[in-house]
């Protein structure tokens, strides 16, 4: 990611009121994680798998603070169980920011499953999402995801793809 894209993500998170980020690092967002760690207004929590991160974010919601789950899109699959239970069972929302591995242009065979499964899994969970491939749209898209989730009390997702992450 370019520094300007990293800055746009952090501006969006701050405008949305996020003060806690749970993450499991990946390669496409590799410049984002240290920037989040270094930001004095954001507490980062490193998790052992993304489902754990989703559940922690759910707990943060209950505290009145705002959290984000930042991950590769493969983490969505690891998060399906807690997302289904919290979102569909209790109306506890999690906002996710994920890198779009496996879209057209992917050059790693192991990432192909991530691209094939991401959108169908989001659809199966009825999670609205936006794929952002233009840097200018990052900040506002993140803000709008929080607007939606804090009115629907349900999950939403932003996937960053294309030249934003490559």
């Amino acid at each position: 990611m370019k520094q300007s894209a990293v800055d746009a993500v952090i501006r969006g998170l701050k405008r949305a009121g996020v003060s806690i980020v749970c993450y499991l690092p990946d390669s496409l967002f590799k410049e984002l994680y240290p920037a989040l760690d270094a930001d004095p207004e954001i507490r980062t929590i490193r998790v052992t798998n993304e489902g754990e991160g989703a559940a922690i974010c759910g707990g943060v919601f209950l505290s009145g603070k705002r959290a984000a789950l930042v991950m590769e899109n493969s983490g969505l699959r690891a998060s399906v169980e807690p997302l289904a239970r919290m979102g569909l069972g209790a109306g506890i929302p999690v906002v996710m920011l994920m890198s779009y591995r496996g879209e057209l242009g992917e050059n790693n065979w192991w990432a192909i499953p991530h691209g094939i499964t991401m959108e169908p899994v989001l659809d199966a969970l009825r999670i609205p999402y936006r794929v952002v491939r233009e840097e200018d749209a990052i900040e506002q898209s993140i803000v709008e995801a929080y607007d939606w989730s804090y009115n629907a009390y349900y999950h939403s997702a932003i996937a960053l793809g294309g030249s934003v992450v490559r």
Partner: peptide, 10 residues
């Protein structure tokens, strides 16, 4: 995990 998220927020 939810309890920890709550503890982090409060």
């Amino acid at each position: 995990p939810q309890a920890f998220g709550l503890a982090a927020g409060l």
